[in-house]
Design a protein around this nucleic acid. Sequence first.
DNA 1: TCTGGGGTCCTAGGACCC
DNA 2: TCTGGGGTCCTAGGACCC
Length: 426
Amino acid sequence: MDTPAASIRRIAHLDMDAFYASVELLRYPQLQGLPMVIGGSRRNAEELLNRLNAERPQRVWTLDDLARIPVDFFPRLGDYTGRGVITTATYAARSYGVGSAMGLMKAARLCPQAILLPVDFAEYRRCSRLFKSIITEIAPVMEDRGVDEVYIDFTEVPGGQREGGRVLARLIQKSILQRTGLSCSIGVAPNKLLAKMASEFDKPGGISIVHESDLEPRIWPLPCRKINGIGPKADARLQALGIETIGELAAADRAWLMAHFGPRTGAWMARVARGQDERAVVVHSEPVSLSRETTFDRDLHPVQDRIELGAIFTRLCQQVADDLQRKGYAGKTVGIKLRFDDFRSVTRDLTLPAPVADAQAIRQAAGQCLKRAPLARRLRLLGVRVAALQALAPLEDSQQNAAPGPVEYGEVAIESEATGQTGWRF
DNA sequence: TCTGGGGTCCTAGGACCC
DNA sequence: TCTGGGGTCCTAGGACCC
């Protein structure tokens, strides 16, 4: 029965397929099917590009030519030197044992011939906004879960109940593909928890419909790690207790789980293992904190490299301040994060009497934090964070008009500065 | 030649107040 | 002189996610 009165809660989880790589392939279709990794730092990407341009001075390529650049002209992983990790690897690259979060130098030894592209967050965000706007045109109750993922409440959408949500999922999938060229996978279920798992069932390009009655045959055989919220640590602890699958977790005694994992986590585990999740699809949420951090090209000594460190520190504060002001927030708590050469990290923070948003105030407070941090080792990372955010009063219309290209420009410019995706122009 | 960047949420102890 | 107890804020660290 598809009568509105009988509307059953139907929640979809939509996950873009290999999002970053797919966006790159829209620009560079000539790389289709080749081993390709995305990642690395700005400086080395620029070095590669400069070398490339120096080697091929015969012609000046413009942005309109991207799809025509010969494959041979693209930088190779084997030529990369420096720090950084792989953000994404295509299936062709993964067959060489290369994968996400792997160090680039290690990957270079495994697959030197792979194409190496820098991460272009500005472009991914542009595509992200586009596919999300296509979704909300069809189904307005959408929760943002990052650049390539959303939840959608199908319950009250016309047609959202048909075939358990499959008809609407198909419409959304088709609309996104037609208008962006990008493919996605969708799971539809009674709640977010199950929808998230369902979207993984038939990747890429699949639609999976999960009902209450599917819990035992389709969910319980899965490993606990498939539950959103059970990570490597919790999974290892569960396994040590002899629990491998969600079904085994469901069979475990609730009080016993609470005794082992604490009252809150234990009770939560018992609930999710039974497929229970009442969380709403949240259309809008306020940010809690805002931060900028950077890993150095080489580990820096707190004393010998203090000039360089000071400059980076100031720049991070400036970036956070710019982000805050562009987004219209100020924050009471200023914090720093240090990562040492042995990869241990520490944080220090300081809560101020009143929220701040300007670079000087942030730098001042962050400096106080730094004084309380141990500085015996070389540093590999420095970060600055502002938390306990409060929205600033919205700008007057006149001020808004006076601000040049508010959101769009600012984001791109800041991102370029921070992640260094500049100069990547053929 | 290991190990990015930007987030959220939870825990736990101490300070402080009533 | 006998150490209860709740509530809130602050701080540090860690798990987890995209």
